[in-house]
Computed example of a mutant assay.
Amino acid sequence: MITLKNDYLTVQINPLGAELTSVKDNETGLEYMWQADKAFWGRHAPILFPIVGRLQDNQYRLNDQTYHMTQHGFARDREFTVIDQTTTQVSLELAADKQTKALYPLDFILTLSYELVDHQLKVNATVTNPAETEMVFSFGAHPGFNLPLGGAMADFTDYHVTVSPKQIYQRVPLVGPYSDTQHAVPLDLKQPLQLNHDLFDHDAQVLTLDNHETTVMLSTPADDHGIALTVAAPYLGIWSPYPKQAPFVCLEPWWGLADDVQATGDLTSKVAIQRLAAKASFKAGYQITYF
């Protein structure tokens, strides 16, 4: 396990999946991250690559070949290599190999970096295409946060999600595990979204951000602790498993979506797919402030 530490926070990252597993307040010992209780969900903050969400029939076609890949791709279950580390920063890398090419035939280098700055953790990803041909992929993050956050008098339904800018967002419905992008519906987030488990009876709430910088804050009037995630991404998912009464919620920046209900199975025409030219790099990032 990799440990980063400054005056305020101690962070742990597992090289398996380059997964953020713990963020603790040094003074109070408060743990912000979901601790992967398998009774609810056995992960903390998986990295989603080279797909986000589910493929229809867990398969896709590329260059007239059919490949099998399960939800959210394989990066979350692969060992990353540490390429640079200090007391407050680490960079980890995953590159294509024989095992990944059985699932996804393209060359890639995926680099994740985590940097602690005061009360904030900066997370940045770079996808590099070393090949001479175009690369298609999706990328996402899936961090889960404990609820309640240290407030003995608070529970899940005492928390709300405040989105800035305060406006009406387009929400992409999910039909089963698949995106229904043709039937987006307005979601008024001029006021905070009060959390309750029934919000997730059709899976995640998926907001269209259109790459505009957006801050999503998770907090409660019952105490002073919370988190704020800032990102400029195409989409953001808000999720907690249903019908389980799980004591956590995920705030998920996505540069991709689950297959559309009208998906053809061709990866190059997949909804919200990213395209990366030969020898080029794609960059994505977000920041989480803990209070």
Rank of each mutant, 00 (worst) to 15 (best):
G29Q: 01
Q71I: 14
V127Y: 00
L62H: 09
M135I: 04
Y67V: 09
T111I: 15
L62S: 06
T86F: 08
V52R: 05
N146Y: 05
Q71M: 10
I51C: 04
A45T: 07
N63A: 12
T128G: 12
F139W: 13
G73W: 03
P46W: 09
L149I: 09
L92H: 02
K101Q: 12
P143E: 10
A125E: 08
P148L: 02
A141V: 00
P148H: 01
L121A: 13
L121M: 14
L112P: 10
T66H: 02
D64E: 08
Q99G: 07
E31R: 05
L48I: 01
T28Y: 03
L103M: 10
A36G: 11
A95T: 13
Q35C: 14
L110C: 06
D77E: 12
W41G: 05
A39M: 05
F145W: 07
F156P: 01
W41L: 01
P130H: 12
L112R: 14
T133R: 12
T28V: 05
N124W: 10
D64A: 13
T100C: 11
F139Q: 01
V127A: 06
T111H: 15
F145M: 04
F108V: 02
L106W: 00
R54Y: 12
P148N: 05
D84G: 08
L149T: 06
N146F: 07
N124K: 13
D37G: 07
